[in-house]
Computed example of a mutant assay.
Amino acid sequence: MTARARKPCGNMTEAETRLWRALRRGQLNGFHFRRQHPIGAFTLDSYCPKLRVAVELDGGQHAAQRKRADARRTRFLSEKKIAVVRYWNNHVFENLQGVLANLVANMERRARELTPSPPLPLSGGGSDTAPVREERSAP
């Protein structure tokens, strides 16, 4: 599986290469990505393991005939608790900064989803014990 995942690395599309240059080495707000990451029978274009987010690029070959396969792939990844964010190749070429801004927003939303909410304070000012009163002895 790993050998199969590594094989396409040298054959990345131009869109994948451009996006990867922006994602590698934590350049995107410190989010760490892996490229060509294997999950089950699939190889993800880019993957953030900490937040479990897959970034997929779709070109012209992802038209109508690929919609069913992409839906099946997305369902499989969803069952593995992996969120999928998809962009068209032409958006990477025409508006890379917009794609990156959208990806940051998606990553930050995902981070909030995965971060548990802090517990609400207890009634009575948030203290779980009654205040201690000092007893003063009369002189």
Rank of each mutant, 00 (worst) to 15 (best):
T2P: 14
T2H: 15
T2V: 13
T2S: 15
A3K: 13
A3I: 11
A3V: 11
R4S: 10
R4E: 11
A5G: 10
A5L: 11
A5M: 11
R6W: 06
K7N: 09
K7I: 05
K7H: 11
K7Q: 14
C9Y: 11
C9D: 07
G10C: 15
G10K: 15
N11W: 08
M12P: 08
M12Y: 06
T13V: 11
T13N: 12
E14D: 15
E14P: 15
E14H: 15
E14A: 15
A15G: 13
A15P: 12
T17R: 13
T17F: 10
T17N: 10
T17K: 12
R18D: 08
L19M: 12
L19E: 03
W20Q: 06
W20Y: 09
R21I: 08
R21D: 13
R21M: 12
R21Y: 11
R21E: 13
A22H: 12
A22L: 12
L23H: 02
R24K: 13
R24H: 09
R24E: 14
R24M: 08
R25C: 11
R25N: 15
R25Q: 14
G26I: 04
Q27W: 05
L28S: 01
L28Y: 04
N29R: 09
N29Y: 05
G30V: 04
F31H: 08
F31C: 02
F31I: 01
F33T: 00
F33G: 00
R34A: 01
R34H: 15
R34T: 00
R35E: 02
Q36N: 08
Q36C: 08
H37G: 07
H37D: 09
P38S: 11
P38A: 10
I39A: 06
A41C: 06
F42N: 03
F42P: 00
T43R: 05
T43H: 02
L44M: 13
L44K: 00
L44P: 00
D45S: 07
D45Q: 07
D45I: 02
D45N: 11
Y47F: 03
Y47N: 00
C48A: 15
C48H: 03
K50L: 13
L51T: 03
L51D: 01
R52H: 04
R52N: 01
V53H: 02
V53M: 05
A54N: 03
V55D: 02
V55C: 07
V55W: 05
V55I: 12
V55N: 04
L57M: 06
D58Y: 02
D58W: 04
G60F: 05
G60S: 05
G60A: 07
Q61A: 14
Q61I: 10
A63K: 01
A63H: 05
A63W: 00
A64I: 03
A64S: 07
A64V: 04
